[in-house]
């Protein structure tokens, strides 16, 4: 019964949360009020962990909530619940996309959308850059412009960008390398 409920609830989240992982939060908050499967404190902790582990945040949170509520099977059920609507909706859209993506009107609108998408990706990157390359709290506390920039991190950024563009190695290499470097030199 708990498995069935978990599936239905996460199916609903997958169906109604538009715009990625963080859009699922209000729905998870609602689950707390409805079922008391876990507390608000648990939720904050689960989100913090989901953000610091690999994997899409929305999936990590679903897995975590499922596990907390009903163990390993719960985590599998919650994850399957949240992806099922995506699979159905995207397969329907993909079917028509492949049929009509060469149609002049569709092409014209996609040509307008692509620069917007690059803007969205840049905006998402900028949000990470604010945390990774700047020290906004230090700047706010001291008011010194020199404190705003995390020079060590900016140097690493410049070196990495040079290597990425020049040597075209697998992105995973840079992620692992920077993670190990971060353990020894705190950024």
């Amino acid at each position: 019964m708990i498995y069935f409920l978990l599936f239905i609830e996460f199916f609903k989240i997958g169906l109604f949360a538009i715009g990625g992982g963080l859009a699922t939060l209000p729905f998870l908050q609602e689950l707390i009020e409805k079922y008391h499967w876990f507390s608000s404190y648990d939720l904050i902790n689960m989100i913090a962990i989901s953000e610091s582990t690999p994997g899409p945040i929305g999936i990590n949170t679903a897995t975590f909530v499922g596990y907390k509520t009903a163990g390993i099977i719960g985590s599998i059920i919650a994850t399957l619940g949240i992806v099922t609507p995506s699979i159905i909706i995207i397969i329907l859209i993909a079917h028509y996309y492949m049929k009509f993506s060469e149609h002049p009107v569709v092409r014209a609108s996609l040509n307008g959308i692509r620069p917007v998408v690059i803007g969205l990706i840049a905006a998402a990157g900028f949000e990470v850059a604010k945390i990774a390359l700047l020290s906004i709290t230090q700047f706010a506390a001291t008011g010194s412009l020199l404190k705003l920039f995390n020079f060590k991190a900016i140097l690493l950024f410049a070196i990495l960008l040079y290597f990425i563009i020049k040597y075209k190695k697998h992105p995973i290499l840079y992620i692992i390398g920077a993670g190990i470097l971060g353990i020894f030199i705190k950024f």
């Binding site: 610091s52 040509n111 692509r114 620069p115 998408v117 690059i118 990706i121 840049a122 998402a124 990157g125 990470v128 850059a129 945390i131 990774a132 390359l133 991190a153 690493l156 950024f157 990495l160 960008l161 990425i164 563009i165 992105p171 840079y174 992620i175 390398g177 920077a178 993670g179 190990i180 470097l181 971060g182 353990i183 030199i185 705190k186 950024f187």
Partner: peptide, 28 residues
């Protein structure tokens, strides 16, 4: 974990920047 993530975030920003450059060349 925090320190590793600090480094990983810098790599993510660099990787996204290079992705944007490639997409820019093709679509803008």
């Amino acid at each position: 974990v925090q320190n590793a993530l600090g480094g990983i975030r810098v790599a993510v920003v660099a990787l996204i920047t290079s992705t944007i450059v490639k997409m820019w060349k093709q679509s803008i």
